[in-house]
C-alpha cells in the first residue's frame, strides 16, 4: 500500500475536522422547536444539538466497519490470504473506538433531549448491538490463540448478516420518543453542509486509522518473516 495514504488522509481529516468544527459552531443555526403559537417548546436543544454532527458521523463509520469487516472476512476464508484478514481486523478495531464515541455522545444527547442517560432509542440500540459484535470480535482475536483469525472471520460474517435482523428487531421495538423517519432528512440547509463535511472528515480519519493499522499488522508480519529467514540462514539465533 502506498506510503502516502495515511499522511494524505490524515491531513484531509485534520483540515476537514477543523472546517467541520468551525461550520458546526459558527455557521450552522441553533436548533429550535416551536409550539404552534410560536413559543419555544421542549424539543429545543440549542447547543446540545451540535453533538449530533459528530455522533452520527461516527455511527456511519461503525456501520461501514461491520460491512468492511464482513466482506473482507469472506475474502479471507475463501483465499486464506492474510491481507484480507488484516483489513477486517483493522476496520473492526478502529470501529470499536468509533463505536465508543457513538455510545457516549448518544448518551449525552439522550440526557439533553429526554433527560435520561440511556433510553433505548432504536438507532442507539442498534449501534450498541453492533458494537457488542465488534467487541466480541476483538475479544476472540485476542484470546482464541492460533486459530483466532478464522474464528473471528466467522463472527464478522455472521455479524454482518445479522444486521438486517437487528434493524428489524429494534424498529419493531421502537421507543415513542424517537420518530421513525431519519433525523438527517429533517436537517435545515445550514445544518446539512456542516453535517456532510463532518461525515467526510471523519471518514478520512477512519480511513487513515484503518490503513495505519493494516500497515502496522503487515510490518509486524514482515519483521517476523525476516527474523525467520535470518534463523533459517543461521544468521540469527
Amino acid at each position: 500500500m502506498n506510503k502516502l495514504v495515511v499522511p494524505v488522509f490524515g491531513v484531509l481529516a485534520a483540515v476537514g475536522i477543523a472546517v467541520a468544527v468551525w461550520l458546526v459552531f459558527m455557521q450552522a443555526p441553533l436548533q429550535y422547536g416551536f409550539h404552534p403559537d410560536g413559543a419555544l417548546n421542549g424539543s429545543s436543544l440549542f447547543y446540545n444539538q451540535k453533538i449530533f454532527y459528530f455522533h452520527v458521523a461516527h455511527a456511519f463509520m461503525l456501520f461501514a466497519a461491520v460491512f468492511v469487516s464482513g466482506v473482507c472476512s469472506i475474502a479471507f476464508l475463501k483465499t486464506r490470504k492474510p491481507k484480507w484478514d488484516d483489513v477486517a481486523m483493522a476496520a473492526t478495531e478502529v470501529a470499536v473506538a468509533f463505536g465508543a464515541v457513538v455510545l457516549v455522545t448518544g448518551s449525552v444527547w439522550a440526557k439533553a433531549a429526554w433527560d435520561v442517560w440511556w433510553n433505548w432509542e432504536p438507532r442507539l440500540t442498534m449501534s450498541l448491538l453492533l458494537w457488542l459484535v465488534l467487541l466480541g470480535y476483538v475479544l476472540v482475536r485476542r484470546f482464541a490463540g492460533p486459530s483466532a483469525d478464522r474464528i473471528a472471520a466467522g463472527m464478522a460474517i455472521f455479524g454482518m448478516v445479522g444486521v438486517p435482523f437487528i434493524y428489524k428487531m429494534v424498529g419493531q421495538d421502537s421507543h415513542p420518543a424517537a420518530g421513525r423517519e431519519g433525523v438527517v432528512a429533517t436537517l435545515g440547509p445550514g445544518m446539512r453542509a456542516a453535517f456532510w463535511i463532518s461525515v467526510a472528515a471523519f471518514l478520512c480519519w477512519f480511513v487513515a486509522l484503518v490503513v495505519a493499522r493494516v500497515q502496522s499488522a503487515r510490518a509486524e508480519r514482515e519483521l517476523r518473516e525476516l527474523r525467520e529467514r535470518g534463523l533459517d540462514l543461521g544468521v540469527l539465533s
Binding site: A144, I151, G162, M169
Partner: peptide
C-alpha cells in the same frame, strides 16, 4: 469464548 461469540449474534 462460546458465549462471547454467540450472545451478540443471537440477540435478535
Amino acid at each position: 469464548l462460546l458465549p462471547v461469540i454467540l450472545y451478540p449474534l443471537l440477540i435478535p
